[in-house]
């Protein structure tokens, strides 16, 4: 089993980002469920994976996609989404970008671009590690990443024309 110290470190470093990552497919409650299940699976493993971060993101991705594909769960997800709207990010005083605007921009992105941006920006993963998770070529991922950034920039500029352009 993975050592408890290492587990605590992994949990503190990646739990929130993993939930944000799972939210690319699921609502907040389902994303938390999926991340919990993945952490429990990690803790139940007899041998720690070589790269726990890549393992976690890959497992969360598979579980979230599987979860989202279920028709019954999808209807529940829609009901939950209608009932509650939780934020992707915690608002801070020193934020350079409005958190809710960033969330809106993120939500408008295609799925493939969003997951690359989340793994790159908040999980601090290299494109090679992201390629290990998604199974895509690095060049494809970079292309998606760059397109996503440009799309976010365009959306934020169009939604806030009076704000300072980045």
């Amino acid at each position: 089993m993975i050592a408890s110290v290492q587990l605590a470190f992994v949990f503190d470093a990646h739990a929130a980002t993993l939930i944000l990552f799972a939210r690319q497919w699921l609502d907040r409650a389902a994303a938390e469920d999926v991340v919990q299940d993945v952490f429990v699976s990690l803790m139940s493993q007899r041998r720690s994976p070589d790269n726990p971060r890549a393992w976690l993101y890959k497992a969360v991705r598979n579980a979230a996609i599987s979860h989202a594909r279920s028709a019954s769960r999808r209807s529940k997800r829609e009901m939950r989404l209608a009932e509650q709207r939780t934020e992707f990010f915690e608002s801070g005083a020193d934020d350079l970008i409005d958190a809710s605007a960033a969330q809106e921009a993120m939500e408008s992105l295609p799925q493939e671009q969003r997951e690359v941006i989340v793994m790159r920006l908040w999980a601090q993963m290299t494109l090679a590690e992201i390629a290990e998770v998604t199974g895509e070529a690095v060049s494809t991922l970079f292309s998606r990443y760059r397109s996503g950034l440009l799309e976010i920039k365009r959306i934020m500029e169009s939604s806030c024309p009076t704000k300072k352009k980045i």
Binding site: L7, A8, F11, A15, A16, T17, I19, L20, R28, E32, V35, Q36, F39, V40, M43, T86, E87, F88, F89, E90, G92, D94, D95, L96, I97, A99, A102, I117, L121, W122, L149, I152, K153, I166
Partner: peptide, 22 residues
């Protein structure tokens, strides 16, 4: 610059603890 500004946003914290997972 956009990448850096986005990266400073902090994802919402998990509503479960490590003890709960254990």
């Amino acid at each position: 610059e956009l990448e850096s500004a986005l990266g400073r946003l902090v994802p919402s914290a998990a509503r479960f603890t490590l003890q709960h997972l254990e």
